[in-house]
C-alpha cells in the first residue's frame, strides 16, 4: 500500500487548559470520523497523536483510524517544551516509517500538524526542529497558532504552511478537520511538473486558507 503518515502534535501546556483544550478534545471525534470514513483519506492515511507540555508523549501511536474506536483525549498542564515535541516526533517518524517499509508499504513524506497557543519555554528547541526537518523522513509541518501564540514562532516551526487563529469562535480542530481533508486529497493528485533532476520540493496543491485563520507567509520558502 501507499501510506501517508499523519501526525497531530498538540500543545498540552497549562495555558491550553479550559476552553482551548476542551474545543480540541470535542472536535477529535469529528476529525476521526472525517479521516476514517472519507475514502480519499482513509485508504492511505495512518494517524498518530502526540501531546506535549513539560515532556512529549505519544498519546496515540500511528494507526489506521478505521480500525480504532476512539482517539485519546488531551490533558492540559505544565510548561511548553517544543524541543521535546520535535524530538518525540522525529523518533516516532523514524520508527514508524521503518516499520511500514518493512511490511512492504510505500511511504509518502510524513505530514505533521503542529498546534500551539504559546511561546516555547525551553531553550535549544530550534536545534531539535532543525534535526527533525533535516532528518531522512523529515515531515512537512503545518503549524497552527492558537490564542496568544507568537506569529514569528509559528512561522518558524512551519516549513510548509502556517496559520494564525483570527476568530476564536472557530474551533482549531474543526479548521484542522477541513484542512486535513483538503491536504490528503491534494496528495492524491500531487504530481508536480518538475524535471526529475531539479529541486527537492514536495508538491502539494493544498488550500492556502483555513476558515477563521489567517495565513502566515513563510519567507524562508
Amino acid at each position: 500500500m501507499q501510506i501517508l503518515p499523519f501526525y497531530m502534535v498538540c500543545d498540552e501546556s497549562g495555558s491550553m487548559g479550559g476552553p482551548p483544550i476542551d474545543a480540541i478534545n470535542s472536535a477529535l471525534p469529528e476529525l476521526h470520523q472525517e479521516i476514517s470514513t472519507n475514502p480519499t483519506v482513509a485508504d492511505k492515511t495512518r494517524f498518530a497523536l502526540i501531546g506535549f507540555s513539560d515532556d512529549a508523549t505519544v498519546l496515540q501511536p500511528l494507526v489506521d483510524l478505521s480500525e480504532l474506536e476512539e482517539l485519546p483525549a488531551l490533558t492540559a498542564g505544565g510548561i511548553t517544551s517544543y524541543g521535546s515535541a520535535f524530538h518525540t516526533l522525529q523518533q516516532s517518524i523514524e520508527a514508524d516509517v521503518a516499520a511500514l517499509k518493512s511490511e512492504g508499504h510505500e511511504v509518502y513524506r510524513p505530514v505533521a500538524f503542529f498546534l500551539s497557543d504559546g511561546v516555547p519555554t525551553d531553550s535549544g528547541w530550534e536545534q531539535a526542529l532543525k534535526q527533525l526537518t533535516s532528518s531522512r523522513y523529515g515531515p512537512k509541518i503545518i503549524a497552527f497558532g492558537i490564542g496568544e501564540a507568537d506569529t514569528s514562532t509559528i512561522s518558524q516551526v512551519a516549513n510548509f504552511r502556517a496559520f494564525m487563529q483570527q476568530d476564536s469562535s472557530v474551533s482549531p480542530a474543526a479548521a484542522l478537520r477541513e484542512f486535513a481533508a483538503s491536504l490528503t486529497r491534494s496528495i492524491v493528485r500531487s504530481a508536480g511538473s518538475i524535471p526529475a533532476d531539479g529541486g527537492s520540493g514536495f508538491t502539494l496543491a493544498v488550500d492556502d486558507t483555513v476558515p477563521g485563520f489567517s495565513t502566515v507567509s513563510l519567507d524562508k520558502l
Binding site: Q2, K101, E106, V107, Y108, R109, S134, S135, R136, Y137, G138, I187, S190, A191, G192, S193, I194, P195, A196, D197, G199, S200, G201, F202, T203
Partner: peptide, 21 residues
C-alpha cells in the same frame, strides 16, 4: 535525487510540453 528523500514516494515528474529536459 536527494539524500534526505531516499525511499519516500516522490510524486514529482518531468512533463510535457515544457517541464522536461
Amino acid at each position: 535525487s536527494t539524500p534526505h528523500s531516499q525511499d519516500i514516494i516522490d510524486t514529482r515528474t518531468a512533463a510535457l510540453p515544457a517541464a522536461y529536459d
